[in-house]
């Protein structure tokens, strides 16, 4: 009756593996279909019965996208904007989160409430006054306009999450350094930031995704084709009368590959985060 330790481990492993495979079907199944559609012709996408791989398997949709200089420009813009937003958001948010996590100051609670709740205003209602503001500041149809806008949307999230991560770290860590004579900035950058890398990476990736996928403001705050981003490029394939299904799918996949690679490269930080000893004190 009693299982050996080894047997129990094996059972647990099969359980975990089964769960992982089940989850993977749920997570990746639709994306697999998307991938398959991107290689089909537009009629085959809707044929019955559906097939994963069809006779007319082709890279036409990809060729069409990769040979169009306008579309490549969309990719460039998206990377530039999303990259800048991620770096700037992280820099600003880490400091703000540090203040929220480690300091008491007048107005802290009010600020907290404000930062959290401003995100709740439906962006669509902000669109009109916001547009006027951006035009007034001379930021219309510029990269800085888009970058600052996205920062406004990503900062509250980043601050809340970073505060959450910093709160999981014992105060003794940085207190000790400060008491030691080092300044707060030193304590933050030398102690807290290095051990918060998993959190920073996850916030960074999400910030990147928000900026990468945003559509409404990207469309409204830019005017010329040279300033458009990938989501607008995808929307342009959804015409008034018809959709370029395979190109929509191909462009989405092309857009996601670099992000996926980025994630794969950065995910080692999830594993090499903290080691037990460095936290306990």
């Amino acid at each position: 009756m009693a299982l050996t330790t080894q047997g129990r481990t094996r059972l647990a492993r099969s359980g975990v593996l089964a769960g992982l495979i089940l989850g993977a079907v749920f997570a990746a199944g639709p994306v697999l279909w998307m991938l398959s559609s991107s290689f089909k012709s537009n009629t085959e996408i809707f044929e019955l019965p559906p097939r994963l791989i069809t006779g007319s398997f082709s890279f036409d949709a990809y060729t069409a996208i990769l040979t169009d200089s306008e579309t490549l420009r969309f990719f460039f813009n998206s990377y530039l904007v999303a990259g800048a937003v991620t770096i700037l958001t992280l820099l600003v948010a880490i400091h703000a989160a540090y203040a929220f996590s480690r300091f008491e100051f007048r107005g802290k609670r009010v600020l907290n409430v404000v930062i959290i709740s401003v995100q709740a205003v439906p962006p669509i209602t902000l669109l009109i006054p916001y547009f006027g503001l951006v035009v007034g500041l001379g930021l219309y149809n510029t990269y800085p306009g888009l970058i600052l806008t996205y920062m406004v949307f990503t900062l509250p999230y980043a601050i809340i999450m970073m505060t959450g991560y910093l709160n999981t770290l014992p105060r003794e860590l940085d207190e000790a350094v400060r008491v030691d004579g080092a300044g707060s900035l030193t304590a933050l950058w030398r102690v807290l930031v290095p051990i918060s890398v998993p959190g920073i990476v996850s916030v960074g990736i999400y910030t990147f995704m928000i900026a990468w996928n945003e559509y409404l403001f990207a469309l409204t705050l830019t005017r010329t084709t040279e300033m458009r981003t990938v989501p607008i490029g995808i929307q342009l394939l959804m015409g008034q009368h018809s959709y370029e299904w395979n190109q929509i799918m191909a462009m989405s996949i092309l857009g996601s590959i670099p992000v996926l690679i980025l994630f794969l490269v950065l995910q080692r930080y999830f594993i090499s985060g903290l080691t037990a000893g460095s936290v306990k004190s």
Binding site: A27, V31, N213, Q235, G255, S256, L264
Partner: peptide, 13 residues
């Protein structure tokens, strides 16, 4: 990598 896939696409897609 498989599990983050749904994250990578814009809402319209």
């Amino acid at each position: 990598a498989l599990y983050v896939l749904p994250w990578l696409f814009t809402a319209a897609v």
